[in-house]
Structure formats: C-alpha cells, structure tokens
Design a binder for these strands. Structure first.
Lengths: 109, 109
DNA sequence: TGAATCTATAAGTGGTTGCTTATATAATGA
DNA sequence: TCATTATATAAGCAACCACTTATAGATTCA
C-alpha cells in the first residue's frame, strides 16, 4: 500500500457521516432507504457517500429487487483497522433495533 | 472519542505529505529546515502541515535556539494505530541517513 | 399499463484544503 | 549592531468536498 492509496482510504473513512454509515454496516447490511431513516440526511447525499466508500473499496453493493443492499468489504486489507477505529466510537443515537421496532427494516425476499 | 474528534484525527493523518512527515518523525525528531531537505516542499507548506498535525494532537514542538524541534506525541490515544498505519507504508526515498551523510542533519547544543 | 417506490446522477453552491508568494518575528554570530 | 538563519503567519488561488434540488432509470404491483 502506497501513500496515495492510504490517503484515499483515510479520506474515505475520515468523515463523520461516513463513519456513522460504516458503524451501521459493521452490524448489518443495509439499503439506502434504511439509511434515510437512520441518518437525518437526504437520499442523494447518502448515495454519494456510498459511492465514495465503494471507490475506496470499503463497501460492496448487491442489487436485490428495487433495493441496493450495501455491506462492509471484510476482505479489505485495512478492515481490521476499520473495526478497531469504529470500536472507539459511541453507539449511534438511532439504532437498527429502533428501525425494526418501527417496522421500517426492509425485508427483501 | 466522538465522531468529530475521530474525523479531525483522520483528516490530519489523511494527507500523503503529512504521512511522510509522520513517518520521518516516527524515526527521529526533526526541525522544519530538515524537512525542507527531505520533502521537496517549501518551508511555509511544511510549517502549515506541522500546525495541522499539532492541532490534532499528533505532534509536539520544542523550541531549541533558532530551531523548533518537532516530535511525535506518543501519548496520543491513537498513537498505536498511527504506528501500525505507518508500518504499512514504504520507506521514503530520501532518508534521514542521507541527511546525516550530507552533513545536513541539525545538531543543536 | 401506469402509479409508486428505490436509487443514481447531474448541476449548482458555499466552505475547506493545500499550496504559493510575501512578509514578519526571533535567535545567532561576525 | 547588522546580516544571516529558522520559523510562523498572512493573503490569494485553484481544486476539491459535502451538501442541495431536480431529474432520470429501474423495479414492483395494483
């Protein structure tokens, strides 16, 4: 890994909203519409964050019906570092559990 | 550590020139004029990078005569993470050893 | 088929970043 | 004292960033 690649990685992780997204993804795979419920952000903003995370190889996507399910790339060479960094951060206010209790968790197929 | 603090940290580290600086500092404390020899960068650019690293708590300074000696803050909570990240990066082309051999290493007092 | 839903992308915008040149401050030493 | 050296800071600038609104593409289902 060279300096430019490391820079790209750290810039992808180094945004508080993307860290929140990664924190959620470390617990479950999620689609954009679920993030709109979790993250007080517009749908395009979330899509753009996902694109940036994907370009850095941190996440992957899988089309499932009309949803795009996003998940952490556990094969990324810095995946262990990411998990460690996320472990230092507090739990997000709004949890995936909240989502389930409100019946807003997407169940595709 | 909250999300904003982590973001500030990752933004401070997430620049290829600052990573180079940190890599050098992980081996030795250095002053600005030594970095101008090591880093194909102007003196103000280096000073500005040091300021940014200092604001994030990654480095500390010590005045010694007309020099300001900069060193890694080994007490930073993410110091072990930093060392690990740096260990993944290649050796800089120009080494501190080169500096010594060229008689450009500063010896203050 | 056509409305509703989910997502991606485009264009525009204000703020930030990393650099430059110019200059100020401070310490050293002839 | 005065030139030299080391450093910090200021102002200016092009590039980039994270967001917004608007819109288009794709899928589902009545």
């Amino acid at each position: 890994m060279d300096y430019i690649q490391m820079e790209a990685y750290l810039k992808a992780v180094g945004d508080h909203n993307r860290m929140l997204i990664l924190n959620y993804l470390s617990k479950d795979s999620l689609c954009i519409c679920e993030f709109t419920e979790l993250l007080d952000m517009t749908q395009p903003a979330i899509s753009q964050h996902m694109r940036k995370l994907k370009q850095a190889g941190l996440v992957g996507e899988e089309k499932r019906g009309r949803w795009t399910i996003w998940s952490l790339n556990i094969k990324h060479p810095l995946y262990p570092v990411l998990i460690h960094l996320l472990s230092l951060l507090p739990e997000p206010e709004r949890t995936i559990k909240d989502l389930i209790e409100e019946g807003k968790k997407v169940v595709c197929d």
